[in-house]
Nucleic acid binder design. Structure first.
Lengths: 151, 151
DNA sequence: TATAAAACCTATTGTTTTAGTAGTCTTTTC
DNA sequence: GAAAAGACTACTAAAACAATAGGTTTTATA
């Protein structure tokens, strides 16, 4: 039940891009800056951000002083959207996937016990990922920092 | 976020083994019988059942008329136990694993937004898997069958 | 007591996925 | 027009996955 490095890095990068920008800062962030901050290979991250851009979650600016920025407000982008672009369906088994259903080959799908439980698991994961926006994540980070006495 | 075939087949097999035995039926079930019912390669299933046996979830009887049976009552074996034997930790990322923690390499683990959310995901999955026993699964199957007008 | 049926165990193999590297092309600013 | 940035495509090494293969041991029973 593993998140891939691709998914991990992509989610990390999106969280960085969702951070409230300081005064006078550029609205766009460059690949190499994110890569440096999050300790990710810049070329690998490039592919990931490109995929997120082609999926419509990011916009970019080419050329000198260019970089990436969120395509929508951070409260309108969910972790579920990001996850699905990078790692595919959330469901642990194809036959319970809402977005990419396929039969899983069990004798009788309707009464398959495994399917019933995995359906619950899928819903539990999707509930979290689809109802958590990037803004929710940054809000939570802020409150954790406050609790720990700023930083 | 995928369940492996190994995990899928193992869980299926355990559910079969948890089914209430008919009168006069042998208390043990053979690999090939399960393989046939669930459409699994018998040799692959053999490895899986062996792993479950070595983990203490199954017992076996060798020789003619042998086979496998649950090591404990079906209400005392959870899907979480089976899953972990076959697919490893439930957590989507190592740094939120309760059973097999490892740092994940983010700059600051305490305030890592991804880690906060993935912790929730881990807990949601573990809540289901660790609180669902094989007996719960078979009970649920029965009630689904009843609802659909027996079968 | 020989035979066949069953689990036990280990090694090997082919395929797919993963995680990354490399290199060229295009756009933009100065 | 040079440099800085993203866009795109191809490739590759290593690991994981899904089996397959084949011999060993145990046990019931004919």
């Amino acid at each position: 039940m593993r998140l891939s490095k691709r998914g991990e890095y992509g989610l990390r990068a999106m969280i960085v891009l969702a951070e409230p920008v300081e005064k006078n800062a550029m609205p766009v962030v460059q690949i190499k800056e994110i890569a440096l901050r999050e300790q990710i290979s810049p070329k690998f991250l490039e592919q990931i951000l490109l995929a997120l851009k082609n999926a419509g979650l990011l916009h970019s600016k080419m050329g000198v002083g260019g970089g990436y920025y969120l395509a929508r407000s951070s409260s309108e982008i969910t972790l579920g959207q990001i996850f699905r672009v990078l790692d595919g369906p959330v469901a642990p088994i194809k036959c319970v996937s809402q977005m990419a259903y396929e039969p899983c080959g069990c004798p009788d799908e309707q009464t398959c016990g495994l399917r019933l439980v995995m359906g619950d698991v899928r819903n539990a994961i999707a509930d979290i990922l689809d109802n958590t926006s990037l803004a929710d994540v940054t809000k939570r980070q802020v409150s954790v920092r406050k609790k720990l006495g700023i930083k």
